[in-house]
Structure formats: C-alpha cells, structure tokens
C-alpha cells in the first residue's frame, strides 16, 4: 500500500448516533450468544475507531462498558425491558471489545470479547454497609441451598422433574443466617412425583427452561426454604451442534463469530413467559 493511504482512522464521537447504532448491534450480538449468566445492557461507549476497509465498507473498533441486568439469558424478556442490577445487589460490569464491519449501511459483528467482573466489596459497602456480597457458587452453603430449593420445587410440581442447569448467583446473609440463590432449571422426561433416580432423567428434546430464586434460612433445629420459579415457554427443537469440541457445559464468555457456535438449542427464542409456577 502506498504510505500514508488507508491507514488513517475516522474519529467518531462516542455518542454519535452512528456509534450508538454500532454499539446496539454489538450488544444484541452478545446477548444472543451468551449461554450462561445474565443479559447485559450498554452503559457507556468507551472508545470508537472507524477504519476504511478495502474494497468497500468500514471497520468499527468499539470498546463498551456494560452492566448486568436481572434477566437470565434463558429468560425471553427483551433486554430493553430488563432492569439493571443495582449496586446494593452487588452489581456486575462487563468490559467488551468489538470489531464490526459496516457494508451498505448494515453492521455485522466480526469479533467480540467480553469480560465481566463484580463490583468491589468496598464499593458495595460504601452504598450499603449491610448488603450481602456475592458468594462463590461452589460454597457448600450455596450448593446446599440450591439442592434444597430444587427439591422443594420438584416436590410441589405436578408435572416434569426439573434438573439444575446453572447456579447463576448467590449471596450469604449473617442475620438471620440465610443463603439467597438464583439458578436456572430445565424440565426432564421424568415425572416429578415418581422420580427415584434423577440421574436417569433426560432433558426434553423441546427444551423447557425455568429460572428460580430461593432463600434458605437457618433456624433453630432446622431450616426454611422459600423458592419461586418462573418457567419459560418451550424452546423449539433445533439441530444439535457440530462435533467440534465446542459443546461444553460452561461456554467461554469470549465469542468468536468465525467459530461454530455452541448448541443453539440452548438459546432462548420464545417471547412468552409462563409462570411463576411456585
């Protein structure tokens, strides 16, 4: 290439409508490809560079700050209707890098990489000294709370036996000693009232996911469990993923559009919410 040609990027305002349009396409892409955790919403556009692309088009480099919402990725609620997780609930932010190609006025995501991290304990304490912080998901009290809550939910279920899909977040409170958990579930081919060996139950071909919030409170001589689950509309049967080794239970947050995507059967498509059941 001749020196000095084609190597200059266009500096665009971060709040320019064109930048915001690119950012929105990027956010839609992230939320459509997340397979775990919660949907994220745009908080701030950090940087934007627009490079000329030969023979035609432009390449947008974007850095975005996002915030976690309270909608699980399996929840079909449009992200625009999802509430941002508040600081007092121990907010989680995302730091994303994108490259998008703009051709004929249309954006296409070429690269996306997001890392999420919870707010610091100090910051949470500043706004709410007594608020419980996020707890490790493998904490024994968290695991126990999820198991007890799922058992309580299944005991009340007149239909399918539900399996755990993912523990999404947990908080431990000292007074009264209690554990708050949020987790995703999926219906199996077993009947809840007749299950003897849950390991033999299989997820339905037509996936039916749910999302549960539960609190286990320790008390003298026992414990109380309160659980509420929202069951979403069934997901249509779609082809299974290719045997490329990418079909893992816990997908990476980094998303490479050039690589084959993990099981699309796990992605939400429905828009109607059924429930809550309990």
């Amino acid at each position: 290439a001749p020196p000095g040609l084609g190597l200059v990027y266009r500096e665009l305002n971060c709040d320019d409508p064109e930048t915001e349009e690119a950012a929105q396409v990027a956010m839609d892409y992230v939320n459509a490809h997340l397979l775990q955790g919660y949907k994220h919403i745009l908080n701030q556009i950090d940087k934007v560079k627009v490079w000329p692309r030969r023979p035609t088009g432009e390449l947008f480099e974007l850095e975005l700050d996002t915030l976690e919402t309270i909608c699980h990725v399996l929840d079909p609620t449009p992200v625009a209707n999802c509430t941002v997780r508040q600081l007092t609930e121990h907010a989680v932010e995302g730091d994303c890098d994108f490259r998008l190609l703009k051709l004929d006025g249309q954006f296409a995501v070429l690269f996306a990489n997001c890392d999420s991290s919870p707010d610091s304990a100090e910051d949470v304490r500043k706004v709410c000294p007594d608020c419980p912080l996020l707890a490790p998901l493998n904490d024994t009290r968290v695991v126990h709370a999820v198991e007890a809550a799922l058992a309580a939910f299944n005991a009340q279920s007149n239909g399918s036996y539900y399996q755990i899909v993912e523990v999404s977040r947990a908080q431990l409170a000292p007074l009264p000693p209690s554990t708050y958990v949020e987790f995703a579930v999926a219906a199996t081919d077993c009947v809840a009232k007749e299950v003897t060996d849950p390991a033999k139950c299989n997820l339905l071909a037509e996936k039916q996911y749910g999302f549960c919030k539960a609190t286990l409170t320790e008390k003298f001589g026992g414990e109380d469990v309160a659980v509420t689950c929202t069951v979403f509309q069934t997901q249509p049967v779609v082809p299974q993923p290719q045997p490329d080794g990418n079909n893992v239970a816990v997908p990476p947050l980094a998303v490479d559009p050039a690589a084959p995507q993990p099981a699309p059967a796990n992605l939400p498509a429905a828009v109607r919410v059924v429930g809550p059941l309990v």
């Binding site: 665009l12 971060c14 908080n43 701030q44 950090d46 940087k47 934007v48 915030l67 941002v84």
Partner: peptide, 27 residues
C-alpha cells in the same frame, strides 16, 4: 503599533468525543 494577544473570552464547553455518556451508573 501595539502588538499583543487578542483578548480571549470565556472558553466554551469542551466537547470530549470519548468516552460517551453513562447510561446508568459507573462502577
């Protein structure tokens, strides 16, 4: 002939192209 700097008025608001506005809150 008096040579000097032209008087400067109050500076206008500085427009910073990036980062953009915060939509919710900053962590």
């Amino acid at each position: 002939v008096v040579v000097g700097l032209a008087p400067t008025g109050p500076a206008g608001p500085v427009v910073r192209p990036c980062p953009g506005r915060i939509r919710h809150f900053k962590i």
